[in-house]
Amino acid sequence: MNRGWNRIVPYLLILPNYLIFAVFVLAPVLWIVYLSFTDYTILQPSEWIGGRNYERLLQDTLFRKAIVNTIWYWIGTIVPTILLGLILAALLTMKIRLLAAFRALIYLPGVLSSVAVAMTWLWLLDPLQGPINGALEAVGIGGRNWLQNPDTSLPSIIVIGVWTGLGYAMIVLLAGIQGIPESLYEAASLDGASGPQRFRFITVPLLKPILLFLFITATIRSFQVFDLVYILTGGGPANSSTTIVTQIVGASFQEYRMGYASSMAVFLLGITLIVTMLQYWLGSRNTTTE
């Protein structure tokens, strides 16, 4: 074997991957930070304007609204998703018959594309003919125009977010619970611990790393919410359901204010990095103390 050639081969094997990674991930990250200090639009050359984008961002009431909405979406989806997911996963480990069927059915909405999900709910929530208003009227409650009413547009999207996200939380937690040694439960049963007690004192503490993982990934994902909002409400009515990414896309690809939009993207990057650091910090603290 040619030793010189062998020294180059490893680099050649990772080269294609690195080239694409460098051009489409690393360079864009550095570039977005640079762009956020310019007034770049796709139509004219950019000029360095220092921190003016960020000054404007601080006073942008629309962007503040988007942040608040995104935080509501985050809380509104993450709490029910993880809580229900945990309960479902625990129930599925009770030597349930038809386990595979329950798991598949509950996970099914999660495999569909966000567009297919949005279209389905567009029909369900249709103000005139939709099944949800129809069912409500049948029991004497007046329906409403869920997606086009500022009070219900964001909550509707949150419900849809939970509907698609629940199955994923369930299967991740189920995998986690199945990794807990059966002997622990048997020992607890012998000591007279009830089902809920075993859940509280064995399952939950031992699932901590998985719960943390799920919490972090769900947090990061909910800060990126876009597809459902864009298709269902476009961020409206009256910006009642606009989110951070909706604003980024609007400012950059509809208004061509790429520089300003970049400062929003840097804000999103900042949040993501903070949350990820939090995961490493909490994760390493967990393993050292336990």
């Binding site: 991930v25 864009p28 990250v29 977005i32 990126q224 980024i248 999103l268 990095l273």
Partner: peptide, 22 residues
């Protein structure tokens, strides 16, 4: 370096990616 990529949302890189594509 590659692991850093795991932390970067697609929504953050989309503007420069668009310019690079163009």
């Amino acid at each position: 370096l590659l692991l850093l990529g795991l932390m970067i949302p697609a929504q953050v890189t989309v503007i420069p990616q668009f310019i690079i594509m163009k």
